[in-house]
Amino acid sequence: MSGLLSQLPFASIDGAIEFIFEPQYSNVTGGNKVGGIDKVVELTINQLQVTVISLAIALAVALPFALYLGHKHKFETLAIAFGNAGRGIPELALIAFMAAAIGVGLLNVAIALAVLGIPPILTNTFVGIHQVDRAAVDAARGMGMTEFEILRKVEIPLAIPTLMGGIRGATIAIVATATIAPLAGYETLGDFIINENVYGENGVLAGAILVALLALALELALAGIQRLLTSPGLKPRPA
């Protein structure tokens, strides 16, 4: 059993793809194979699940707040400064801190990731609503719309590109950062990335590729949703 050292797997795309589909030999597992498509599917579902939950939390917290402030044109500096300050919170520290407060697991991770998603949603939604042409809003008011109708029928549609930009940014940040969840009791694709000892370099690379693909897929899906939500008048015309 000697000389394993020289066989340490060095990463290659081929090796990573093999790891994704077929369980591989590992140095430290006493013969149990690791990786493979079943595990990949399981962890991908976990990663999507925590992403969706924490995006929902982030939207529930940030959207009403930002819509209201944007509509009232109030506290611009505060909304933006709060948004920016939120981006500076280190996720790992937050997870460790919350481990002592609420324990580890899905809830801890989902809340920590939501904190990451709130700032872009907050800032973009606020700015999107705030910058809507006041003449359009006045016209709507003149037509007898209530404030809620103005928000729903005029301001939100006009702000959709900016607003969705925030949600897309938040989604990418959350799905990419969800790779640290295995450090707080919830297994995601990050398990492949964190445990190079077990999965080898091919496993690390496979994890990185899978997370990148997942992020890309989510981005495309949200771009599609954005297209559906954007009013025809705002769509770019061919030049």
Binding site: L92, A96, A99, A100, V104, E187
Partner: peptide, 16 residues
Amino acid sequence: FTPVDIGLRYTVLDKG
């Protein structure tokens, strides 16, 4: 089995 960061190995005992 619940995976956690090495730094939390006593926190999880204190917690539950």
